[in-house]
Structures are given as structure tokens and as C-alpha cells.
Design a protein around this nucleic acid. Sequence first.
DNA 1: TGAATTTGACCTAG
DNA 2: CTAGGTCAAATTCA
Length: 368
Amino acid sequence: MENSADWEQKNLINELTQGRELAKQLQLQLHLNLSSSHETRELLLHNILKSYEKALSMLKFNGTVAEPSPSGVGIGMSDSPRSLSGSPHSEDSDRDFKDHERNDNSRKRKSMPRWTQQVQVCPGTGLEGPLDDGYSWRKYGQKDILGAKYPRGYYRCSHRNVQGCLATKQVQRSDEDPTIFEITYRGRHTCTQGSLLTPASSSPEKQEPNTTMYLHQQQTIHQPQQNQQDSQEMLSSFRTGLKVITEDLESTRQQSPFPSFYFPSTSSIKAENYVPSPSLIDNNFMGNFSPSFISPVTSGSNYFPVSPTHMNRFGGNQNLHTSDQSDLTEIVSAATSATNSPTIGLEFPFGPTEFDPTFTFDNPGFFS
DNA sequence: TGAATTTGACCTAG
DNA sequence: CTAGGTCAAATTCA
């Protein structure tokens, strides 16, 4: 496994290097076409370069240091899927079956991709709670978190039993700004939820009353590799407002060297869990992941106020992404970076008009 | 009545 | 040992 991981890592680096080169080329092109409006593009290019470089260094670093886990290709995360090694067995006396199940879950839990999304709701609406991301979730627990003012809610896909979908999410309200909810998704949906196409409408979720409540949304991706659901989730994010903080990078995607568009991500990279397990990759994660996310860290959070209208349109056009969620990912990262950068017009792969291109990037200092 | 949520206990990782 | 995450019985809701 380590070999494969190592291999993946190399590919990743290779990929990133290419991306960097491409960015450089673009930069050159820009120089040739000196047009005022392109200045911002140049800035973006710089960001891209920086992002790639940082990612590269990170990957290299991790490659040599952390990587014991089978799936852990990347960033040094503390989670070793196998760390469960010895404990569980010794104790199953009473809970045999439970144990099995639990072990299984734990294992998967750890190796599952994880990404965070922050959503801000409008205080005035009186609506509170996480928003609907198009999937139906069932709450299975709540826990007070140390240092957090509000408890964290644990949800799992309601199709878990029926379709064995292991996707889960955690919803944590920000103590500083109660209107902001941080939603951490884990695992991908293996179920076929029609709700994706028909968002909240049919969703049983009561936590989220209406999409109109969200003003902003931010997303932090800890792990790339997702499938449609990811993109869909992201899409839904866009649907509402959006803000994304792309954070991790994984760049496992090896096939498409270049995404339809790149963006420097200004967000912070947390790289907490990074586990591109072969199986996942197999599934097709890699195929669609765009490196655009490799972003250096920037702490800020940026919000994208998007009008409901746009969002709706967004949601309504999900089919556009059926085959390539990387677009979304990219979009997401773009958005993220966008939030911090100077005014720039974004062009989304699926059509500029779908998403309000009037973003204003206000990037104070890029990442550095 | 069935389904979803709540809640306290249990388990695991760090 | 502690905090986070999950389970499952009890409770609530539609």
C-alpha cells in the first residue's frame, strides 16, 4: 500500500507541477495581452502559482514523513485507518455484533473523505439550523463539544439502512456567530437520492426550513475525491450562497491535467484527513478532482452573497455536472479564492450566467 | 402506529 | 484520561 500511496503522491506532485507550468504559461500570455482588466487575472495567476508551489512542498514533505496509513497519501493526518488495530477485539464480550459494526464504521469513518462547509443563515428569518443540501439526513446524535457553545449534531444518510449509504455529516454552530453553521461531511453518498434533483422540497429534513435563509456559505474541503454527491452538495451550496474554503488538497485527480478554470484558493488548508484510498480512487474520485484547490492557507473566511435566484438556477442545472464534478470543486475553490481577491469576473464551466459572475474578490493579501 | 429525534451510555483515538 | 463519535432505548411527532 505504501507503494501505491507513494505512487499516487508522485503523480500528484507531477500533476501539480504541470499545473504550475500551465499557470506560468498563462501568465506569459497575459503579458502579451496587456489589457487593464487582465490585471486581476495576473494576480490570480500568481496565486495559482503560489498555491501549487505550496501544495507541492506540502506533498513532498508529507510524502517522506507521514504516510503509514494505507490510504494516507497525503497530508499528514493523524488518522490511521488501521490504528484500530488492536483494541476492539479484546473487548467484545457483550457487544459482539455491535462491535463488528462499529469497527467497520470506525474504520470507514477514518478513511473517509471529509470536507467542511460553513453556512450562514439570516438571523432575521428566525430560521436556524443547518440547511438542506439536497440529501436526506437522519440525526443520530448530539454532543456538547469542548470549548464550543453549541452542541454538535450528528447526522447520517437516511438511506443508510436501505442502501448502505455511509455518508454522514456533523453540524456545528459557530459560537462567535450563531448564524453560521459549520457542516462537516464525511463519506460519499452511495445511495441514489432523488432529492438531489429535487432539493429541499422533498427532503424530510426539518432542520432547514428554507433556502432563503442562507446568506453565505463557505466550504472547506478536507478531502477531495468525491463523486456526484460532493459536487452536488457543493452545488447546493452555491445554490444558496456560497462560500467555500477549500482546504485540502488532494489532488488525486490524475487525468485531467487542467480544469476548466483554476483559481487560487485563498483559503486555509487544513488537511486534516486525507485519505485517498485506492478504493475511493477507484470509484472515480481521482478522475474528477481538480487541483484547483490546492490552496495555501489563508484564514479568512469569505462569504458570497448570492441571490436566491441564482442559486435556484444553479440547483436546477445540476445535470450540467453530471460527469465532472471537478467543475464544481473548482468553482468552489474559485469562489473561495474569489472572496478574497480583487474584483474578478469568474467564468464557471457550466456557464457564467448560471452563477452570478458579479463576484467581487477581495483578497487582501492572497496567501502568503 | 411508524418514523424521526432526543439523550445518556458506551467505545475509540489521541 | 479526555473528548469526540456512535449506539440504541426512550420519547416525541405526524
